[in-house]
Design a protein around this nucleic acid. Structure first.
Lengths: 171, 171
DNA sequence: GACGATACGGAACGCACGCCCCGGTTGGCA
DNA sequence: TGCCAACCGGGGCGTGCGTTCCGTATCGTC
């Protein structure tokens, strides 16, 4: 690969990181190109589609977070809650976190699997209500993460969800 | 107003009701026109903008729901929870419910006020955690209502939120 | 230093959508 | 029944966006 090509690829990735984080997947690709100081054509020389660029930006970060699901914890509930906390923390600052769940199907599956594992153990330990499925949790978290971008207090919103998860029965 | 005009207006409203409920605000206006069996121009003869049509369709329904906030209940918590339950019930079937919060600012304000009143009373009665604001609740509910359209189990999701609201402290 | 391959930039295309305009049509009153 | 105003339909305009194309510039090699 030519030197300038590598440099431009990096500039595009850098611009995409900033803008996807700030505005989510919705940001126009031309804006990313402008910020990187290149033309839209150059972006497409390095990434076949806007989705591919988005994936290149988010994949590593999200995968790392998913792997953190297997970190040791004192009990299943703590493990699950810590993971959800990390998700909220990330999403509160970077807007692309919640979009990643929607845009990349495989990524959603990985998250589903990771959350499912944590959830099941917490439920078997009797620490989390048993009527929740992994699908429910992924969907609920996605909704909550989006709420964080509209001015909701992260601690309060997450606090409500976590507290709700460990209730055994409805009011 | 001419007879055929009134008839068309009603056909447009009917089509809009169905399509907004099924697909939300995002549905193209031309699709509504097609379903009503008229041209797009006819829609604009009766409603100055797409938003106005949306408002005409949702306003009454949402206002009625907001007024139901002052229904009598045995205690503040029950009143609040019943209201949230009605919101979830409606949103689970009609996709325009959650969009209405976003699209029409005045409507969001009304909802904010109604929820704020119910919330404050429940908090003063010590039945709901006090760190939640009305803004938090509107935002959280919007996120949750959207989650309902993605396959989340309505009872479970609402159950988590309600349970979370009445917890006094975090885990 | 010249040449070929590689990469660049931005103009242009296709598409979707909200919204407007106008020639033709229809309804209701005299 | 005839006439005019009201109304209709759909083609068209402007815009924004993802994507592609191509003439030009640049890199790296011989």
């Amino acid at each position: 690969m030519r030197a300038d090509a590598a440099r431009n690829r990096e500039k595009v990735l850098e611009a995409a990181r900033e803008l996807f984080a700030a505005q989510g997947f919705e940001v126009p690709l031309d804006e990313i190109a402008a910020r990187a100081g290149v033309g839209p054509g150059t972006v497409y020389r390095h990434f076949p589609t806007k989705q591919a660029l988005f994936q290149a930006v988010t994949e590593a970060r999200v995968s790392a977070m998913i792997e953190s699901a297997s970190l040791p914890a004192e009990d299943p509930k703590t493990a699950l809650f810590a993971f959800l906390g990390r998700m909220a923390e990330e999403a509160a600052v970077k807007r692309d976190m919640s979009d990643a769940i929607t845009v990349t199907p495989e990524l959603r599956k990985s998250l589903h699997a990771a959350l499912g594992g944590l959830l099941r153990k917490a439920q078997e330990a009797g620490q989390v209500r048993t009527d929740v499925t992994a699908t429910d949790l992924v969907i609920l978290m996605k909704g909550m993460l989006q709420s964080l971008h509209e001015g909701g207090n992260p601690e309060v919103l997450l606090g409500i969800v976590l507290a709700g998860l460990q209730s055994s029965r409805k009011p």
